[in-house]
């Protein structure tokens, strides 16, 4: 077991190192903004005092490494700074820090929860669906069913999320009003109502993700079914059900887990466009809005969170597939 723990520990450290590297990349990228961005935010007509106030507010007078470590230290403690809009507001009213400040953290957390809910609903639909369809297409490969699924999944993968979204809106919101096309979610909503309003974005994500996940599951299973030990199991006269359950599935678990985790990581990206289409109050929409008004602290924070989730999911895939490998679980 020591070997296995060692490998997992190694992966965890690697994950943390990657996250660290990512934080540097994000910081450097943001600092590549031209000139004095306090100036560029306020425009040419701003008074030097206002510019100076912003600079202090954002800590722009310190050296880049100092600022980086302050930011990183803050981020680890959940302090992601204050949004530019707040800083601007304060610089105009002249009030210093304190009072009713909405920090980036406050802004992000409720939205992150919403996004998690959306991703959770999509995953809850897409994972069982994709795995089932993947196994079915692998078992009935090269049949008409398989070919039809191949064409439809390829089409789904190829379509931009907003295309899928508008098709769903067209059929499930406008022509047949089953679900609302705008997802105005707010805190304290009832679960059923919330689910109803989340359904269309969730279905869009499901369509996008299921196709990919299904194809990968299919490939993994086909690969597995071609292995000699499956042939051996058949030649032992076992029932097809037993061959699948007892011989294929234990070995299929690792690839399927990897596929699922990788595609959940993909959800992180997909969520941005989908949230914008359905005006879903999640972190993706916040991110896009902040990008448009160049609210750097928020952009930075969102980016870090997206990357962290992405890395975490990839790491989970890695660790789970290590654990499910009998060779590593039972060393010589």
């Amino acid at each position: 077991m020591a070997g296995l723990l060692g490998i997992i520990l190694q992966r965890l450290l690697l994950g943390i190192a990657t996250l660290f590297a990512v934080s540097i990349i994000i910081f450097v990228a943001v600092n590549a903004l031209p000139g004095d961005f306090a100036q560029s935010i306020l425009g040419q007509g701003a008074t030097p005092e206002a510019v100076e106030a912003i600079r202090n507010q954002l800590g722009l007078n310190e050296s880049p490494p100092t600022r980086y470590f302050k930011w990183l230290l803050g981020a680890v403690q959940g302090d992601l700074g204050i949004p530019m809009s707040q800083a601007l507001f304060q610089s105009f009213t002249g009030s210093s820090t304190g009072g009713d400040v909405v920090t980036v953290f406050d802004q992000i957390i409720p939205r992150l929860k919403n996004t998690m809910f959306l991703a959770g609903v999509s995953a809850a639909i897409s994972v069982p669906l994709a795995v089932t369809l993947g196994i079915l297409t692998a078992l009935f490969r090269n049949t008409a069913f398989d070919k039809a699924m191949n064409v439809s999944t390829l089409s789904a993968i190829s379509s931009p999320e907003f295309f899928l979204a508008y098709i769903l809106i067209l059929f499930l919101a406008v022509l047949n009003p089953v679900f609302p096309s705008l997802s105005n979610i707010f805190p304290g909503m009832e679960f059923g109502d919330r689910l109803n309003k989340t359904m269309l974005p969730a279905l869009t994500l499901t369509l996008a993700v299921t196709a990919q996940m299904m194809r990968m599951t299919r490939a993994a299973i086909i690969n597995l079914l071609a292995s000699p030990y499956i042939e051996m199991a058949r030649l032992k006269g076992l029932s097809p059900m037993r061959v699948i359950v007892k011989h294929a599935l234990p070995n299929a678990l690792a690839p399927i887990i990897t596929v699922v985790a990788l595609n959940l990581a993909y959800l992180v990206t997909g969520v941005v466009v989908v949230e914008v289409v359905f005006v879903y109050p999640g972190i993706g929409q916040l991110f896009v809005d902040s990008v448009k008004i160049r609210d750097i602290p928020v952009v930075q924070a969102c980016c870090l969170i997206f990357a962290a989730v992405y890395i975490l999911l990839n790491l989970t895939a890695d660790v789970l597939s290590i654990i499910s490998n009998p060779r590593l679980r039972h060393p010589k």
Binding site: V22, I25, I26, V288
Partner: peptide, 23 residues
Amino acid sequence: VDALMAIPSLIFSLLLMTIATAW
């Protein structure tokens, strides 16, 4: 490349596009 790929590409492009529009 590992480090760059650890940031989802659409997110990363959005981040960089923020800076690009400023430039």
